[in-house]
Design a protein around this nucleic acid. Structure first.
Lengths: 112, 112
DNA sequence: CTTCATAAGTAGCATTGCTATATATAGCGA
DNA sequence: TCGCTATATATAGCAATGCTACTTATGAAG
């Protein structure tokens, strides 16, 4: 997967992963990897800064905890986040439809 | 359409627009706008630098001409460009599939 | 003569995901 | 005990890319 492909679409994926319920960063990463059958496997240098951005934007809230001796930051969608997710889904539909249309082969000016 | 959404996908769209036959920049812009029903309407500051990049990458070749008093640079796909377009289409399929899967609502761990 | 569509271009910016690297704990195998 | 792997989080700095804003120029319409 080319590096830039994801640009502008990551936030939606992270929000979607958190829709199922509160998750910590590492779990989000795993969830994304599983839901896409390994096609989207983000490095930690992508996922953590992105979660920080989302938190600062007020779309998720995080709380620290310690589980099994390891500290965790568990994130949860805010209501703004839920709204944003809905918007991201809409925009993805629109975007994907447009790109698919533009990418479609148009063999020749048929009488459309 | 959010600014970053297109990042990493523009090249494929431009190549696809040129698949129908040689076109100059402005015509590519129009073709893209029409094939997406106005959803993708690129500013000239996006389209011309991008075409330059594609030319430098050897995916398209351009030739100057003057039509109706206005100078034009007409671009044409190279064989590398054709190959690249095919690759872009594949990658788009893969990417779109992955994002769609990740964005899908998973209401709850049903017995899937 | 002004305005709009056509046609091409560039400088500089903002955003964003990635690489590389660091820290720390738990558990397993040798 | 030592080393390795998985878990868990984090940051500095980079590279890439599309966009904004602006410029230049012609032809047609009013």
């Amino acid at each position: 997967m080319r590096a830039e492909a994801l640009k502008g679409h990551l936030d939606g994926l992270l929000l979607a992963a958190l829709e199922e319920g509160p998750q910590h960063g590492y779990a989000v990463k795993e969830a994304l990897r599983e839901s896409t059958e390994g096609r989207i496997d983000l490095p930690s240098g992508t996922i953590y800064p992105a979660l920080h951005r989302l938190e600062q934007a007020g779309l998720i809230t995080g709380t620290w905890s310690v589980v099994g001796g390891r500290r965790r930051r568990t994130y949860e969608l805010t209501s703004d986040g839920r709204e944003a997710l809905s918007g991201e889904r809409d925009r993805w539909q629109e975007f994907a439809g447009a790109v698919t249309a533009a990418l479609r082969t148009r063999p020749w000016p048929t009488t459309t």
